[in-house]
Design a protein around this nucleic acid. Sequence first.
RNA 1: GCCGCGUUCGUCUAGUGGCCUAGGACACUUGGUUUUCAUCCAAGGAAUCAGGGGUUCGACUCCCCUACGCGGUACCA
Length: 467
Amino acid sequence: MPLRSVRTRIAPSPTGEDIHIGTLQTALINMAVARKNKGKFIIRIEDTDRVRLVEGAEKKYLQTLKSYNITHDEGPDIGGKYGLYRQSERLELYKKHALELIKKRVAYYCFCSMERLVELREKQIKEKMHTRYDKHCLLHVKDVEERINRNESYVIRLNVVPDKKIVFDDLIRGQITIASNEIDDQVLLKSDGFPTYHLAVVVDDHYMEITHIIRGEEWISSTPKHILLYEAFGWDLPLFAHTPLLRNPDKSKLSKRKNPVWASWYIKEGFLPEVMLNFLALLGWSHPEEKEIFPLDEFIDLFKLEEIKPVGPIFDLVKLKWMNQQYIQNKSDEDLKKLIIDFSPDAKNIPDQTLSKLMPLLKSRMETLVDFAKLTGIFFDKFGEQSFNQEEKDIASSLVNDLSKIKDWKNDTIFNIIKASMVLNKLKMPVFYKIFTGETRGLPLPETLEILGQEKSIKRLKEVLGK
RNA sequence: GCCGCGUUCGUCUAGUGGCCUAGGACACUUGGUUUUCAUCCAAGGAAUCAGGGGUUCGACUCCCCUACGCGGUACCA
């Protein structure tokens, strides 16, 4: 392999709502390989399936990737030296190469109708044969030129030579051998003039000088087709690495029916982007010192593609939550405050100083950013349970009395009064939580009341009396 | 069906022939700290390394078979 500067890429197909969490992991790995080797990381949009194309998907994908801090060096939005980064804009190039393959007799025209193909497939299934194109047009059609001139609809197919073994090295799995007999005469150019993935990916990866093709394991069985194309064109082969697929808890391929799979969902749920990256890094790879928590730069520095395990891990939220909590806990008060304000703009409705004072209380109690709103209801006049029994009202009443007398509104003076009431009435803390917040658990009460202020605390108690 | 890729505690994993009577993390249980809830600390249970054959003085580690899981088998990517 000649010395070339490393270039990696992800090539999402804009056919979904958003970037799939598995694609995000692949993106992370691709970016890491590029950065590690001081190379370039490219995003290319593979929008050749006009039927499944989703309006606005490309824009959404790019946004989501950005929100996770996955940054690319070339792409449809920022351009680059390697031409256009959207396949729909490169149709001429694919056509030209398809014709070159025809000339080299590596590919051929096919005029078969969908009906014939379906019929053929059904027959093969019935006879328990491999479902495969029968090379009918290669063997029997002689008037190709005429039919094209007559504007007949056609596709271009790869002419796979039987009885060959195609061997390639996968950086993660080692040597993989697949017999050419297993490969269909794949369509390369569709009748609508668009290439299929197989042609487009090879042409683009070549012209964009991609050195490492790092993609999901669902592509393993397609790789021989691509190798055949590289060979036909006389191009150098890139390196291949097929990453394991993320799984549902039942071990099936991660799917939206069983798990949230859209990357932006996790941000919406209050997970920190860097946490997701850290978590994804650990799915299939482990830190040499068995560290669980480490920043992106450290991952880029230590990570080796060859160390990825070929086993598909289950994508389990439980550890992700723990990790998110750890990251939140380790934030400075200022940073956490910024995160919270960005996440829930409502936070700006309480004075900045108040917000700052809340940070230390919040830190160890927030699993996700969503928890901010759950823990600070009292500051927004939002309460849980709103009905109170006589005993609770009596306590509230005596608290109004005692708390009003406090001259020095501090958590320890507040606590003394609560404690006195606890002892006197033989009660535990949760009762007092309920009175103030409507919840039975939450931030430390005296501290919270100190921050809330004497006036507001008492006002709240009076509201309880009126319930 | 056929082809390919996998298989270590519930989950993520360490392990590249002797350090493994298998280590760590999450989760779980118990105890400590404590003003609820968390945090933090400590302890504990949890894998006959999918099963069976080899190779070897010795196998979680190498080879073969079986089982199971996943992926592919499109004018989808």
